[in-house]
Amino acid sequence: MQTSVTIGQIPTGWNIDTNLASIEEVVADSKPDDVVLLPEGALSGYAPDLSPLATLDRAALAEAIDTVAGIARRRGVHLFCGSLLPEGGAWWNAALYFAPSGDRWTYRKINLAVNERPVLRAGAELPTLRVPQPWGDLVVGVQLCREIRYPEQWQHLARSGADAFVYLTNAASPEAAAGVWRSHLISRAAENQRFVFAVNLADERQHCPSMVVSPRGEVLAELPAGEIGTLRVTVDLTQVSDWSLGQQRRDVLDLHYHPPAQPSD
């Protein structure tokens, strides 16, 4: 039960063509069946100042999304790419999944950053996704950026059957304390006994690493902070365990997830 992950630490500017070129370079370093990760906002662009959304070419973004889908099909990879997404009359912060089969899937960030709330709409679901591998299905849960601060979301995904967490972020603040977000990633892996596949943008102010963490909390590989680069790691999914979660005192404290109400006809 081995899975290979390719992580691309790239810039996330507002030029869609430049972003596409960077994405293609990362995918070129992958192999068929790889799980490929690109940062939050990697396709559309992203920055603390979201005012460029007002003039972002929606048609060009839609075309670029189709282009990325084609890249995933041609290379035979499972590609997770962050993008701001116009849909239903609103903008969302999303993680887009593209399968070699042509299938697509979207996770919409449920816990928005302060700068996002006036501009973006929050998602309302924490789904898992089955990613086909030669040995069977890898079940993943996806989280975006500041959602690293909410361990209950990750625990819910683990309890829902996730073997690994796909984490896309755009974390580059000079005000962030050094090492805190790295510690969060290690904790999310160890406390849930799941793999963490994490990717951040390439930025000299980067305060969260791009790395792979084992269910034991071991950092298996990590890219240098601030540098453009790609890493590829193969992991053994038999290391995933419910040993810790199975010992929770759920008779004393439990978490309950309430899915959003479905609209009536």
Rank of each mutant, 00 (worst) to 15 (best):
E227M: 13
P127K: 05
R182D: 04
L157E: 00
L245G: 14
E63T: 09
V5M: 04
E222C: 15
W154V: 11
D17W: 03
Q248P: 09
R205F: 10
G88N: 01
Q143W: 02
P32G: 05
Y107F: 09
E175D: 15
S44K: 05
V35W: 03
L37Y: 02
A21T: 15
L157D: 01
F98Q: 04
L37F: 04
V180T: 05
C145Y: 00
P224A: 08
P260C: 08
R188W: 10
L223A: 06
E147M: 00
E222L: 10
P224V: 12
E175V: 10
S22W: 05
I23T: 06
T128W: 02
L20D: 13
E191L: 11
T234V: 02
V5L: 05
P224I: 11
E40T: 15
G226W: 10
L245M: 13
I186Q: 07
G45F: 09
R58F: 05
R149W: 03
G82Q: 00
G45C: 08
T55H: 05
D242Q: 08
F165I: 04
H207V: 14
H258F: 04
C208D: 06
R104Q: 10
R188S: 14
V180S: 01
V212Q: 03
L223T: 02
L255F: 00
R149L: 14
G123F: 09
L185M: 09
E227S: 14
S101T: 15
Q153P: 08
E125D: 02
P151I: 07
M211A: 10
T18F: 12
A54D: 05
A190D: 07
T238D: 08
P263L: 00
R205A: 07
H256M: 09
N170P: 01
R117V: 11
Q9L: 03
L96R: 02
L112N: 06
D203T: 14
A178N: 03
D17G: 12
Q155G: 14
V142Y: 00
V219T: 06
D265V: 11
P32Y: 06
D242N: 09
K109E: 06
A60L: 11
E63W: 04
N200S: 04
G102C: 03
R205G: 08
I7F: 11
L120M: 13
A261I: 12
V213H: 01
A176D: 14
D17L: 10
R74K: 12
Q2N: 15
